[in-house]
Design a protein around this nucleic acid. Structure first.
Length: 420
RNA sequence: GGAGACGUGUCAGAGUGGUCGAAUGUACCUCUUUGCUAAAGAGGUGUGCCCUUUAAAAAGGCACCGAGGGUUCGAAUCCCUCCGUCUCCGCCA
C-alpha cells in the first residue's frame, strides 16, 4: 500500500512505476475518487459537528426549544444518512483501487516483459561435465529410492510424491544444516501457522491477485504458500521498539501452492509441486531506503553463501519490472544449475518492499524523535525442499549412479554418499 | 461439540443513553520543594483522518472504549453478527 498523499504528490512517478511493472491501474480515476472522498467526508464531518453541538444544548433546553431542535435534528439525520451511504460507497471503490496500486520499482530494476528479461548479475561455480551418460533427478532419485512418484500420484494425485529412505534423510540433513547456518547469522528460528486468515494475504500483497492460487479451508482461511505470510502478520498492528531492530526471523513451514494456471509446466519431478517445505528469511527494519538496500544485499548474499557452501553452481539475476510482485521494489532470484536441463532453475527470491507491506499490516515503530513510522520489510528464501534436491543430485551424480554428499552436509547426513 | 463469563487509554480498573476521549490508581515527561541509589506537590502525556497554512509546528473539525452493522435527535452504555480471551463439561494427537 502506498500513501495516498504520496500518490497525489507523485502522480507521474506512480504511473511510470506501474507501467514498468506492467500493472494496469487507473491512477487518474483514483485521484478523482480521492477528491470526491475528501469532499464528501468534509461535508459529513460538518454535519456531525452540528449534531454534536446541538446534542450539548439539548438536555438543558426547555420544552419548546427541545422539540424544535429535535425536529431539525431529525431532518439533519436523514441528510447525514444519505451522505454517509455515499461516502461508504466511495470508500469501498477507493480501497479497491488503492490495493491495486503497485509499489514503485527501483531505478536499477531493468525494463522487461517477463522472466526471460531478468538480467544476470553474477554466476558462481564450475558446471559439472560427465564422462558417462548422466541422469536427470527423476531417474537418479527413483533409482536410489529417494522418491516415489507413482505412489505419490496414487495418494495425492497430480504432482504428488513421497520422499523415502535417503530422500527423507537428506531432507532432515538440509533443514538442520540450514537452521544452524542461519541462526549463526542472527536469525531467530520460528515455526509459524500456515493456515492463515485471508486478510493476511492482502498484507503481504499476494492479494489482490489470483485467489485460485491458494488452497482454502471450508472456514474461509487460506493455506499460505510461504512462511512470509504468517511471519509478516506476526507483528501486525504492533508498535515495535527501535532497540530491537533489525528483527530477523528464519521461518520454517510447509508451503502450499495450487499451481493453477501452470498445469503444463514442469509436469514431472520435484521442480513444481503442490506442497513442499521452505525456510524463509524475514527482516523488519527502520524506514530508510539505505537500510533496506543494505539488508536486501545481505539476505541475498546469505542464501548465495549457503548455496556456495553446498558447492552448487548458480546464477543470480535481477528481476525485470514485469517479474516483480505488486509490493516489491526490487528482487534478486538465485537460480541453480540443473545439468540435464542445461539451464538454471529458480531456488530463491530476495525482495524488499520499503513500507508497502508494513503499511498494510500496520506495523510501526517510534523513531529517535518519538514519531510513529511504518517499518520496512524484506524477505528472502533460505532453502526450499525438495526443489534443492533436483540440483544436488544432478550436479553430484557419479558414474556408478551414486550421489555425493557435500562436505558441509556430511555431519548432518551421516555418510558421504547415497548409493543404491 | 455443550454451558457460562468477558473484551475500555502503558498497565490495572470505574463507567448501563447526553455534561465521557472517558473517573481513579499506575507508568512516563516537565517544573517546584526537600535533598539525594528516594519522597511530596503542580502541570502535562494517545492514534488516524479532514481542513487552513506551513520549513516544521500550531489552531480548528471528525472518528476511535475488540471488529462490523442496527436502534436513537444523541451509543463505551441498548440490539444483531463476527473475531478473540477465560472457566467448566465432553472429545482427543
Amino acid at each position: 500500500m502506498l500513501d495516498i498523499k504520496f500518490i497525489r504528490d507523485n502522480k507521474e512517478l506512480v504511473k511510470i512505476g506501474a507501467k514498468k511493472k506492467h500493472v494496469d491501474v487507473d491512477i487518474d480515476a483514483l485521484l478523482v475518487l480521492d477528491d470526491q472522498r475528501r469532499a464528501v467526508q468534509t461535508s459529513v464531518e460538518a454535519k456531525r459537528a452540528e449534531q454534536n453541538a446541538v446534542s450539548l444544548k439539548l438536555p438543558s433546553a426547555d420544552a419548546d426549544l427541545k422539540s424544535s431542535l429535535l425536529e431539525s435534528m431529525k431532518k439533519l439525520k436523514v441528510e447525514l444518512q444519505t451522505e454517509e451511504e455515499n461516502l461508504k460507497k466511495i470508500m469501498k471503490d477507493w480501497q479497491t483501487l488503492m490495493l491495486r496500486v503497485p509499489n514503485i520499482p527501483d531505478i536499477s530494476v531493468p525494463e522487461g516483459e517477463n522472466e526471460t528479461d531478468n538480467k544476470e548479475v553474477k554466476i558462481w561455480g564450475q558446471k559439472p561435465t560427465f564422462s558417462f551418460p548422466a541422469g536427470d533427478h527423476l531417474e537418479l532419485m527413483t533409482c536410489l529410492h529417494m522418491v516415489d512418484f507413482e505412489r505419490g500420484a496414487k495418494v495425492h494425485g497430480f504432482r504428488g510424491y513421497f520422499l523415502t529412505g535417503p530422500g527423507d534423510k537428506h531432507y532432515f540433513a538440509i533443514w538442520n544444516y540450514a537452521l544452524d547456518f542461519f541462526t549463526k547469522r542472527g536469525f531467530s528460528p520460528i515455526i509459524p501457522p500456515v493456515i492463515v486468515r485471508k486478510e493476511n494475504l492482502y498484507g503481504t500483497a499476494h492479494l489482490p491477485g489470483d485467489v485460485e492460487d491458494y488452497y482454502m479451508t471450508q472456514d474461509g482461511d487460506a493455506l499460505a504458500g510461504t512462511a512470509e505470510v504468517p511471519l509478516m502478520a506476526y507483528h501486525s498492528g504492533e508498535v515495535l521498539d527501535l532497540k530491537n531492530f533489525p528483527i530477523k526471523y528464519i521461518g520454517f513451514s510447509p508451503c502450499f501452492r495450487r499451481e493453477a494456471g501452470s498445469h503444463s509446466k514442469d509436469v514431472k519431478g520435484l521442480i513444481r509441486v503442490h506442497e513442499f517445505y521452505k525456510m524463509e528469511q524475514v527482516v523488519l527494519c527502520e524506514a530508510s531506503h539505505e537500510t533496506s538496500v543494505k539488508f536486501h544485499e545481505e539476505i541475498n548474499r546469505n542464501t548465495e553463501e549457503f548455496i556456495e557452501s553446498l558447492g552448487i553452481p548458480y546464477q543470480t539475476v535481477i528481476n525485470c519490472g514485469a517479474d516483480l510482485g505488486l509490493g516489491q521494489v526490487k528482487k534478486y532470484d538465485i537460480n541453480l544449475w540443473v545439468p540435464k536441463e542445461g539451464k538454471y532453475r529458480e531456488i530463491s527470491s530476495a525482495s524488499y518492499f520499503h513500507d508497502f507491506q508494513c503499511r498494510r499490516f500496520n506495523i510501526r515503530y517510534r523513531d529517535v524523535l518519538g514519531k510513529l513510522k511504518y517499518a520496512h520489510s524484506l524477505n528472502c528464501t533460505a532453502i526450499p525442499t525438495p526443489r534443492i534436491l533436483v540440483s544436488m543430485v544432478e550436479n553430484f551424480q557419479q558414474a556408478d549412479g551414486s550421489v555425493l554428499i557435500p562436505e558441509v552436509l556430511k555431519p548432518y547426513f551421516g555418510s558421504d554418499s547415497i548409493k543404491k
